[in-house]
Nucleic acid binder design. Structure first.
Length: 260
DNA sequence: ATGGCACTAAAATAGTGA
């Protein structure tokens, strides 16, 4: 079973790329973030026409999440990590017995802003939801754009990013608390070189210079972890020449795991 | 280094991203 996550930065613009990714990697479950589409405009038929099931919850302009799958979704939770602002940042369902939770964590903009406090508040809601769901189903996978670089090893230059957004102690503490509930970052079970990232700024040739962050994560319960046999970061999708019909790329690349 | 670049809504530019 192949499970993948990808922040696509607009499902409308990235449709060709997502279809090509499905064709090349055949994921059983592909979770998407930043679809930036209201539900009425989601390109549902593009996926159902080729045999996939899709669930999604979106909003105008910002955020939005979706799950594309071979098997139909069971026990769907639409936007379960709720906030006052009703942003569409989460969607979850059960596939082959595994509760898959697709997350687009709040960015936070800057540590000195109200958005940062809101990010911490949102992460507290994620902790509560994750704790409850893990108690109900020990086969669980949290994955998506966490907007947190877990350690200094997950950034291009720890001196530059010290105490900055994505790297602050408070954000990392919240991620540690989440892991302490019984989740494991699957990245660590494989031997990736240092300076392995999943996001690079569009600007300044950041991708070519590998000025990036590792912020797209797959956090598995022990039971799911024990089934994981491989882990891939699909950097090819970041090259303009990869998608035949569309040179525009997401600033994130997909991350994919193989489960027995 | 307060710029880069990309996307959306809207119909010029402003907000957001990380």
């Amino acid at each position: 079973m192949i499970i993948a996550t990808w922040n696509v930065n607009s499902i409308k613009v990235r449709l060709h790329a997502v279809l090509q990714y499905l064709s090349e990697e055949s994921p059983d479950v592909l979770v998407l973030q930043e679809t930036k589409s209201i539900d009425d405009n989601f390109p549902l038929e593009a996926f159902t026409d080729i045999g996939y099931h899709v669930i999604f919850c979106g909003q105008k302009t910002y955020n939005g999440v979706a799950i594309i799958s071979v098997l139909p979704a069971e026990d769907i939770h639409y936007n379960p990590v709720k906030t006052n602002e009703n942003e569409m940042r989460s969607i979850s369902a059960v596939y082959a017995g595994i509760r898959i939770v697709n997350l687009y964590v709040v960015n936070g903009q800057n540590v000195d802003t109200p958005k940062y406090d809101y990010k911490i508040k949102w992460l507290k809601k994620l902790l509560a939801y994750s704790k409850k769901e893990l108690s109900l189903n020990q086969n669980m996978l949290l994955l998506g754009d966490f907007n947190i670089a877990p350690t200094d090893d997950d950034v291009f230059d720890a001196d530059v990013t010290k105490d900055e957004i994505l790297c602050s102690d408070k954000e990392r503490d919240m991620l540690s608390k989440l892991l302490a509930l019984g989740f494991h970052d699957l990245f660590y079970d494989y031997d990736f070189p240092s300076q392995t990232f999943t996001w690079w700024d569009y600007r300044g040739g950041a991708f070519q210079r590998n000025i990036g962050y590792r912020i797209d994560l797959l956090l598995a319960s022990d039971q799911v972890r024990s089934r994981c046999t491989n882990y891939f970061i699909d950097k090819k999708t970041r090259h303009k020449s990869w998608c035949v019909n569309e040179p525009r790329t997401s600033d994130h690349v997909p991350v994919r795991v193989l489960l027995d």
